[in-house]
């Protein structure tokens, strides 16, 4: 395991939380939650709450499809948002030698796997939400809506951090 200290030779990242999810079909479970000394990707524009059709400031961005992770405060206001390539998919990318058509998709019957997100540890954050277009086979070009929400337990983090040098692991937790 590597061990490094920040030496002031560049911008240090704030404390972050890595969440690891496993999915089987549309069911997403949080299986690991770990404080890490790392810099999460910058947030996407929080003021961009609208797609072309316009919307208001919640996770539902009418007219927008895809997948993103959000940190929200207790009043449901987004504090951090990162658009991702949809991780829960009923297809897989395949590669060919054709120089003009080297990429394509094939359907997957039983989607199953794991993915991780790295989010900042923000004092006002209340929960993390996964927002996604419908998790279903076939063309899924439909607006995204919240598909899972997980509480952020800062009190446990603080206790764990004191005892366990910045690392915590939690038992499995289903989204709700």
């Amino acid at each position: 395991m590597t061990s490094e200290q920040h030496t002031g030779s560049g911008p240090a990242g704030a404390a972050a939380v890595r969440l690891i999810f496993e999915y089987e079909g549309p069911d997403i479970r949080l299986v690991s939650r770990q404080r890490v000394d790392a810099a999460p990707p910058p947030t996407d524009d929080l003021s961009e709450t609208t797609g072309p059709a316009g919307s208001d400031a919640t996770d539902e961005r009418p007219g927008v499809k895809g997948f993103w992770v959000e940190l929200r405060d207790a009043r449901q206001q987004p504090l951090y948002r990162r658009v991702m390539h949809p991780p829960v998919r009923y297809d897989a990318e395949v590669f060919s030698d054709d120089p003009d058509r080297s990429l394509a998709r094939v359907p997957v019957d039983e989607p199953k796997g794991a993915f991780a997100v790295l989010v900042p540890e923000l004092a006002d954050a209340d929960h993390v939400a996964l927002v996604s277009s419908p998790l279903a086979p076939g063309p899924t070009v439909a607006p995204a809506a919240e598909v899972a929400r997980f509480a952020l337990r800062e009190d446990e983090d603080e206790a764990d951090a004191a005892n366990d040098a910045d690392e915590t692991e939690e038992p499995d937790e289903g989204g709700h």
């Binding site: 560049g10 240090a12 790392a38 810099a39």
Partner: peptide, 16 residues
């Protein structure tokens, strides 16, 4: 084991 083959600074300041 692990070897840092491109070292541009501490892990908490860079993209790893």
């Amino acid at each position: 084991g692990t070897t840092k083959i491109v070292d541009n600074g501490p892990a908490n300041a860079r993209w790893n």
